[in-house]
Write a protein that binds this DNA or RNA. Structure first.
Length: 489
RNA sequence: CGCGGGGUGGAGAAGUGGCAUCUCGGGUGUCUCAUAAGCACCAGACGCGGGUUCGAAUCCCGCCCCCGCAACCA
């Protein structure tokens, strides 16, 4: 009986085109999914788009499109991003999908209601008439709306509320015991201290007149389900929850990893688990929280003109180069920086001159030997074993950046080995090549979940059949030069 | 005293008590198999001030600076 592994990204909000930050999240989740697949686990990898809400409606109006037409087009761009990044997702859920998403959301809502956790209440907020929207204190400048310069008025409206406060203690206990494991620990601390400050009940609906683009509250057509209760259950609805066919749901829930950004930590670490407790469903096991990608040390913003377009980058350098940068250069759980200059440095230094050139020089010599190479490597067994050991430890700790660094360590070691053994000299190649080929073969295997295309190309050039399970020492390879792994640009 | 992080050579990072590590960039030398790639060596750093200790980047106190959050915005 194989283990199951269910990993998700957050669903991307469609009011703007795909952002490099979402590319990061896709890559992280993809590595975990591919890795578990390789380990023989039954894996399920979900991503998708969050298409309701006021901002989507406004964006559609701004583009002079029907909301549905607008989100169809935007959602397609996110799918396209996943495709061009070689993401291996098994499903793509859309919150506007009335067949696949809505029934589960409604069923989930009813479970919360049945648990006695939904009640009508007064939502108090600061309403800016100019914006026709509620404002947060942090949105205001000197108590005034920055866009209109007017002080918002305090108004109340009737909403459905979720009894979040009821789950405060239970939640605290689960996170303290790491039954809901939050990675990294700084984020866990943040959540714990937030919960200890006391949780308030949270508004789960909006009047339909203010928020017409969304799912109506079951049994109360005057209200629309608000983002938490609409978007978060995507992790369930994609598995078939609420649609009668719930075999996948029974197999894969709870999620093993929700990959999310630090900006939505609270929703995933507090509101979502509380909703699941209320619905009597098991909680996700791990929240993997990544940071933000800055551009030249600054937040990306359209006005600064420093927004990085993932498509242009992939077009120019290839999916694997982008994956390498996002997975290795950006600390998995911290903030990272992105500039094209830095990207080029890494591309040339690590991929062109490092990995690509090493493969190239070893394969070239092996080909010139003019006969198949029988692998009898043994002198580097320790180095290989230690690379795998640190790789695996890093993966298990969700440090994908360090896990990838072990490949680069092998590259550095490989280049030193080439200098030391001088395989291009006739009397040396028989002795030197087996170790070098084994080293590259292992590097390729480590790379499989990270840079799938590159790994495949390495296998081809090395003459390795990835389905072959005989020990390295019993194989004979016929390496053959191909195109450079990473062309100079 | 709202909460949580952080400040290590020119850049990016590792390092929670024992000679400060790695990559990029700079300099010098060198190999010639390779994608004008590789390898070796050199220069260069622990925000500031106290304290604990035989010994502190690491622990404690104070200060300065930066970032995120401060709930209904994904």
């Amino acid at each position: 009986m194989p283990n199951k592994f269910y990993v998700t990204t957050s669903i991307a909000y469609t009011n703007a085109p795909p952002h490099i930050g979402f590319a990061l999240e896709l890559c992280q989740a993809d590595v975990l999914a591919r890795w578990h697949g390789l380990e023989g686990d039954a894996r399920f990898f979900l991503t998708g788009t969050d298409e309701h809400g006021r901002k989507n409606l406004e964006a559609a109006q701004g583009a002079d499109l029907e909301p549905k037409k607008y989100v169809d087009a935007m959602s397609a761009k996110f799918r396209e991003l996943a495709r061009s990044l070689d993401i291996s997702h098994d499903d793509f859920i859309r919150t506007s999908d009335r067949e696949r998403h809505w029934p589960g959301v409604e069923a989930f809502w009813r479970r919360l209601a049945d648990a006695g956790d939904l009640r009508k209440g007064q939502y108090k907020g600061l309403y800016c008439v100019g914006c026709e929207a509620f404002k947060k204190l942090s949105d205001l400048k000197d108590g005034r709306c920055p866009d209109h310069g007017t002080a918002p008025e305090a108004i109340e409206e009737e909403n459905w509320f979720f009894h979040l406060s009821r789950y405060q203690d239970e939640l605290l206990g689960l996170i303290e015991k790491d039954e809901l494991h939050i990675v990294p620990s700084e984020r866990r601390n943040e959540v714990l201290s937030f919960i200890r400050q006391g949780l308030e009940d949270v508004s789960f609906s909006r009047p339909r007149k203010d928020l017409p683009w969304g799912i109506p509250v079951p049994g109360d057509e005057s209200q629309t389900i608000y983002v938490w209760a609409d978007a978060l259950p995507n992790y369930l609805t994609a598995l078939g929850f609420g649609r009668g066919d719930d075999e996948r749901f029974r197999t894969f829930w709870p999620a093993d990893v929700h990959a999310i950004g630090k900006d939505i930590l609270r929703f995933h670490a507090v509101i979502w688990p509380a909703m699941l407790l209320s619905a009597k469903f098991p909680l996700p096991k791990t929240l993997l929280v990544h940071g933000h990608i800055l551009s030249g040390g600054q937040k990306m913003s359209k006005t600064k003109g420093n927004v990085v377009d993932p498509f242009a980058l992939i077009e120019r350098y290839g999916a694997d180069a982008v994956r390498w940068y996002l997975l290795k250069e950006i600390p998995t759980t911290g903030d990272g920086d992105f500039t094209e200059a830095r990207f080029r440095e890494i591309y040339e230094g690590e991929l062109v001159n490092g990995l690509g050139n090493l493969l190239s020089r070893v394969v070239a010599v092996a080909e010139k030997a003019g006969e198949p190479i029988t692998l009898r490597g043994h002198r580097i067994r320790e180095e290989i074993a230690s690379a795998w050991k640190s790789h695996r430890a890093a993966l298990e700790a969700f440090r994908l950046d360090r896990a990838l660094a072990s490949v680069f360590d092998l590259v550095l070691y490989g280049n030193r080995l080439v200098e030391e053994r001088r395989p291009w000299e006739k009397e040396n190649w028989r002795e030197a090549l087996p170790d070098l080929l084994i080293l590259l073969g292992n590097a390729a295997w480590i790379l499989v979940p990270f840079l799938p295309k590159t790994a495949r190309e390495m296998f081809i050039q090395l003459g390795i059949d990835p389905r072959d399970t005989t020990p390295w020492e019993e194989r004979t390879l016929r390496p053959k030069k191909g195109e450079p792994l990473f062309p100079r640009i």
